[in-house]
Design a protein around this nucleic acid. Structure first.
Lengths: 332, 332
DNA sequence: CAAACCTGATAAAACGATTTACCATCTCCC
DNA sequence: GGGAGATGGTAAATCGTTTTATCAGGTTTG
């Protein structure tokens, strides 16, 4: 097995304590001894055992990131920026993808109790009583991205996504569209509820009629939902999609039906994932600044871990940004 | 802090050893005691400390996944399938993205030495002497996806990507194209070297002239490379791209120049990432079965960890599959 | 009845580091 | 020269589990 501190100590002719003192930079050890220990450690390619060290120090240098689906580019963006912050702080990231499994997010909280990680960034689509309970009794820092169950006081980063939908709707209204169908995600998820609210408000404010279709937050969902939307509302002149996967899926169906976008019907998405630029026509979207949300969540978490932040929970809300592209008539 | 075994023991009126014995299912403990301990543990919401348990048992229930760039969909596919296998085995995944940082992959090997993980799946684009040395002295199982430095004997999953390029070239030749430009990645990476080989062989076999451009393995790289390719070879009738990001970037440039694909020029990619279906025209690609590679690598790793596989290192090579789409004239 | 045998629980020794309290020396200075 | 102070190192306790060896008490058995 790997060399341990005792091996280094033996080779350097000192005690285990001395090895530790030298390698951790503390203590008053003579230059000569330091040199000997360093040499011995290097020679044996010694790396301190993280579990032993962590057990004693009560730290793991690891955080968990819990996401609904690592296959979704939004969460990849978030994961990437969190990973970058963590690496800069000398931390590793344990990635957990809950993949729609009921209760998987609650299970993940055990990582905190079991001392597997020092903190967690949690993204959960659904609020449940159990999750709320779990979040109530935590001894380790956590930062939630998205809605917090029961409005508990925990560090929190949110995107103002209902405002995002309003931006999209107003953009389409401004283009003269009047028969907007909202393609939403499953109504038992927080984002869907929030985005529906944004759609309702802006449609009502404009004195128009609500038109609603729901599907899974996936490409396939969008494909099926586009068909349903145009069956239910044949004269629709715009599809407002609750996220980009739905929007891109809808574009695919429209293209196959030779329905012209944006001439016959305009389409907008939300999240501003990379694929918006790639698909054709390029998808107008509302940026919810995923990478930035990830960065901020990580920063908040590390502020807690370092003790830099100790006060009451912080909530940050990011404002959305409309990105006009071809699918609503923007420049190609 | 969290409840520990001693707390449970006190509440249940037994010793710490008994608590452990009960919770780990071993030993000969009476039904009555088992019940008491279970109840106490549940009441205190006891979760064994993973570091302490791991220190004693010499196991972490965690593997590391080291990828070049978690922003690339190929690695997302791989990560997703590895995560799924790991979860099924009760393991967590620590994700490390090396992001082009020199030596980051070698540093990651320290995770094994430091006992942070039980095993590792490593994807490294470049072979170096240092990495080869690092791989030589490992006490923990590892599975490398892609070329192994120095042809060391370690568990290994590869895609036959030179054959993949051959498939693409032959497909284009079969369509009557004769002036194929190869848009390759950086020649100091293993995949680029391997894919170049495939291009050379098939072009030579057809008695044609080699045309070569290189760029980073990114969308931006592909965009720039398309311009360079058509400047250097104005009469090119096909772009063979070494991966899909290059291909999609090239498509973008061609579209902006109003060069018709596939009528004026055909384009093929490689990896068959999800975006191939999304972009327009849909990109013909060669599937290297990323998800399957991930699954197999994880499986090989867990076979080592469980002791199910103990013999000499295993190498698996997956054969590529051509996926014809619009960008070379397939059905829309 | 004593020796042998079960049964069920526990004490104690790991695992491999960190850290505190302590112990030698050696120096200094009145 | 001897007490105070530095200096440099070490022994031992500790983190929270797991696991082995042991032990107490009851039951069987020759």
């Amino acid at each position: 097995m790997s060399a341990k501190a005792a091996d280094v100590a033996r080779l350097a002719g000192v005690s285990v304590s001395t090895v530790s003192l030298v390698l951790n930079g503390n203590g008053r050890i003579s230059a000569k001894t330091i040199e000997q220990v360093r040499a011995a450690a290097a020679q044996l390619n010694y790396v301190p055992n993280a579990q032993a060290s962590g057990l004693r120090r009560r730290i793991t240098h690891r955080i968990a990131l819990v996401v609904p689906d690592i296959g979704n580019s939004v969460y990849v963006s978030i994961a990437k920026s969190i990973q970058q912050v963590a690496k800069a702080k000398g931390y590793y990231v344990s990635l957990v993808s809950t993949d729609g499994i009921e209760g998987a997010d609650i299970d993940a909280l055990q990582l905190l109790h079991g001392g597997q990680v020092d903190g967690m960034v949690l993204i959960s689509l659904k609020s449940s009583r159990a999750l709320e309970q779990g979040l109530k009794h935590l001894q380790k820092p956590i930062c939630v991205i998205g809605r917090v169950p029961g409005n508990l006081g925990v560090d929190n980063v949110q995107a103002n996504s209902d405002q995002g939908v309003r931006l999209a709707v107003e953009h389409l209204l401004g283009l003269g569209r009047r028969r907007l169908v909202f393609i939403n995600g499953p109504l038992d998820t927080n984002p869907a509820v929030q985005r529906l609210e944004g759609y309702r408000q802006s449609i009502r404010a404009a004195g128009l009629e609500e038109r609603l279709v729901t599907a899974e937050f996936t490409l396939e969902g969008g494909y099926a939902a586009a068909e349903e939307a145009l069956n239910s509302y044949p004269n629709a002149d715009a599809l407002v999609c609750a996220n980009d996967l739905l929007g891109i899926g809808a574009l695919k169906w429209l293209r196959q039906r030779k329905i012209r976008v944006p001439e016959d019907i305009a389409v907008s998405g939300m999240d501003d994932i990379r694929e918006c630029e790639i698909c054709s026509p390029a998808l107008t979207s509302v940026a919810l600044h995923a990478a930035e949300r990830g960065r901020m969540a990580a920063q908040m978490l590390f502020d807690r871990l370092s003790g830099a932040s100790t006060g009451s929970p912080i909530r940050v809300v990011l404002e959305p940004t409309l990105r006009v592209r071809e699918s609503t008539g923007g420049q190609p």
